[in-house]
Amino acid sequence: MGSLLQVVFDALALGSLYALAALGIALIFGVMRLVNFAHGDVIAFCVFALLWPSTDAVAVVFAGNLPWFLLIPLVLAVGAALSVLSELVVFRRFRRANPATMMIASFALGFVIRYFLLMLYSSRPKSISLLPALSQPIEIFGARIPLLQLITILVTIAVLFGLTAFLRRTRFGLEMRAAAENFTMARMLGVRANRVIMGAFALSGALAGAIALILGSQTGTANITMGANVMLMAFIATVIGGMGSLAGAVIAGFLLGSIATVMQVILPPDARAFRDAFVYGAVILVLIFRPQGLLSARGAKERV
């Protein structure tokens, strides 16, 4: 019973992480058809923003010493600011470019961010202790669950409810959903394109900040490539969720997290090393049977 519960929590926590990241990618894809490869580097940037630039192995914590009620808004704001800045400086000039060009531009931007961090902090992973109170385990029905896992799951649920309320109840949210569904039509009806896109980037950046906090306190290290793996999984989740469908991205994020965790448990020990191969095989299978994604966004089908 206890170990089963442990697996459930592991799956939910990993899934939450993927779901949050997938949301960040799907938000931007929805409004401007951009697959943002810089997202992972924004995540890493948010973690490093807490450290004082140095190349030592032990991080000089700078802003990370703030109390949590200041620390969390700060990290979210850093993510949002960097994300909005990247839209103002780079992506605004790519409005008419085709998706492949935008994708490579976002990748180049991520490259710039990564090596900027490398220049300031060196490529060595650094140990940090971020919100150390969260790493103690608590006991629920005989399973020892790290408090952080529980909080990750709760935060994700809160973010999902908050985002749903925002998208359904506010004018800005309505504009954003309209833009995601049919961008040209929304503009003709008076939605300000640049404002909506900027809003999407700000939200996506703040989500990156949230992931940075979770990852930073989970692993206890800051590494300039720490966002890459999460971003790739999120990217996959966005696609199998149905590009542009926010609900689909979240569901697929949880699905991927669960598949990865469950496979770790049920695969025979010999095959366990090949877990990722099985996960990616499952991804290909999903795509073959539902190429438009689990929940395809309305209006996503190309008309002839």
Partner: peptide, 21 residues
């Protein structure tokens, strides 16, 4: 059989599979 972005992701999954193996 896939097109567009689904095909891109499927090819990425193939790369990750080969790398993992």
């Amino acid at each position: 059989r896939l097109s567009g972005i689904a095909a891109s992701i499927a090819t990425f999954a193939m790369l990750a599979m080969v790398n993992s193996i």
